[in-house]
Write a protein that binds this DNA or RNA. Sequence first.
DNA 1: CTGTTAGCGCTTTCAT
DNA 2: ATGAAAGCGCTAACAG
Lengths: 347, 347
Amino acid sequence: MKKKGEVTIYDISRALNISASTVSRGLNNSPQVRKELRKKIMNKAREMGYQHNKFASNLRQKRTKTLGVVIPRIDSHFMSTVISGMEKVANNAGYQLLISQSEESATLEEANIQALFNSRVDGLLVSLTYETKTKDAFADILRKDIPLVFFDRVFDCGNCVSVVIDNYRAGYEATQHLIGQGCRKIAHIAGSLNRNVYNDRYRGYRQALTDNSMDFNDKMLIITDLGDDLGVSIINHLLNSGTMPDGIFTANDSSAVSLICELKRKGFRVPDDVAIVGFNDDPVSRIVEPNLTTVHYPGRAMGEVAASTMIRLLEGEQFGKINSITLSHELIIRQSSIRQGQPESHE
Amino acid sequence: MKKKGEVTIYDISRALNISASTVSRGLNNSPQVRKELRKKIMNKAREMGYQHNKFASNLRQKRTKTLGVVIPRIDSHFMSTVISGMEKVANNAGYQLLISQSEESATLEEANIQALFNSRVDGLLVSLTYETKTKDAFADILRKDIPLVFFDRVFDCGNCVSVVIDNYRAGYEATQHLIGQGCRKIAHIAGSLNRNVYNDRYRGYRQALTDNSMDFNDKMLIITDLGDDLGVSIINHLLNSGTMPDGIFTANDSSAVSLICELKRKGFRVPDDVAIVGFNDDPVSRIVEPNLTTVHYPGRAMGEVAASTMIRLLEGEQFGKINSITLSHELIIRQSSIRQGQPESHE
DNA sequence: CTGTTAGCGCTTTCAT
DNA sequence: ATGAAAGCGCTAACAG
């Protein structure tokens, strides 16, 4: 692991017969240094192939200009879009992103948080796993007042910010749409109800049923990992349960697409026999036939907002304490849920 | 930016009436320290809420256990899958990933490389932008012997490793397949020919034409950014050019899907009027109707291999110098390119 | 405006 | 097996 001898500010100071502090100041564009000298320092630095050593600087300044990110997985359309927005904002503000995946494991999540803490990230951006139940993993972070921003899958917690959409309302609207299309037996495919996103969507669904005097049947609630190959097992499960729904609201688009494919394969007409509404506005929702009605989730904006909120927190431009930021979603109505001669209800 | 006073090894050494060096050794599980004492140190550390400071450690050891990653964008199925594999391998080996996006801009790419270099990453993993022409941006990296691994979009360069698939052969096979299906006028939609991936696919396409005594017509080559809304303009362009192809090989799946949609909208039958082959095996290729024939690209494996190669490089377990690693691809034949009564040729 | 001095927290010879 | 001391490269008082 031999590193060729680093050129340090001392080398420059020696070459220029000035002190290291002046070199440091010059390199950081301090107005305390004569413009002329500053330029001389810069030139010499370039000439000598000097490269700023962030570590030494960090150690001294006790900040890293680095943000830690912990997410369940990065390889979904939604999450990669969030991270893309986050990286852009962070990079523009001179921050770097240390990204780690928890793979839906609370244990790995905790290990990742610990590692990021040891790396002394200035702030932590987190979207929780399916499993996470307690805030224990965040104890160190919170004790040290390291800013913590949750996004999408969040914890309600006093000293941190959450960036979310109104999943409850989105779930309500999705269900209401199915009801408006004439569906009378509506199933819901959910993710882990530990997590706000799935719990809220579920509660919205329940409320919409209630508001339309429709009974909830617990055979119509299926809790899954929302994978993209759920169609077969879910449709079989529903058929076996003896009550085939005429509408399904499912908590993400990949499961919705899988359902549509399986329904078509089994000879059901979509949406006339079974109408589907998904969630996320994944690109596939526009491609699958019939096109999928879904909830547009502003992923890029969520990443941007989370990052810029974090940076504002770090750089202390707060005007009062923010607890939570809710971005707007939108129900995108596509043909898969518009039934023949069944006009869309005007809400 | 007040940080509550860190607990250091000195605090522990004082509490235990031993020296800091012993504490350091104990914490690092050095066999030089009595087992008993080691345990006492560990316990005290936990009790006092000690947290290892990676910076100080890095500064001293001149390594960071951090890998820098520079990619055009993270928000595509392919790239997010690569990164996912890379992160997993890195994390398992105790490395962290500093990820930045170049957004297809050579300038931003260079700035990102510079920033990562200043952060003293132990190694750099790069997939190039459309624009990048020279290796100038890598001068510092190479001079300092920082291991450099390219993946997907690579530079041929003496002192670094490339992880790729055989894009030439894949392009050849894709085109050959269309020819086998009876296509006689085959267009190719390419990305920037600066980049190996697109150039090689293009050359494979040309060679397949040649080997089948088919003329190449430069109106059949369209160079684009391979965006997902290219369908309209490309089909119009082809129609206006006076020679509508009966087969199209396009360098990624999102453009392929966009083409299919536009062709269907215009009343062409796919594949009987125009057959399509894409690239990447994106999930949409399985959803679009007709399903898309495409080249399976092992994204996760590519990320894993790139990361583990890097780590092997860093940890010096090399058995000779590796220049390039080629992963295997696979042409996935789906209905969009199987024409009625036109049996698939047996290659 | 510039220099002197000290120290961030850790690891690592070199002694003992 | 443990300790003393030096130093990684930088920045921030403080002094002039």
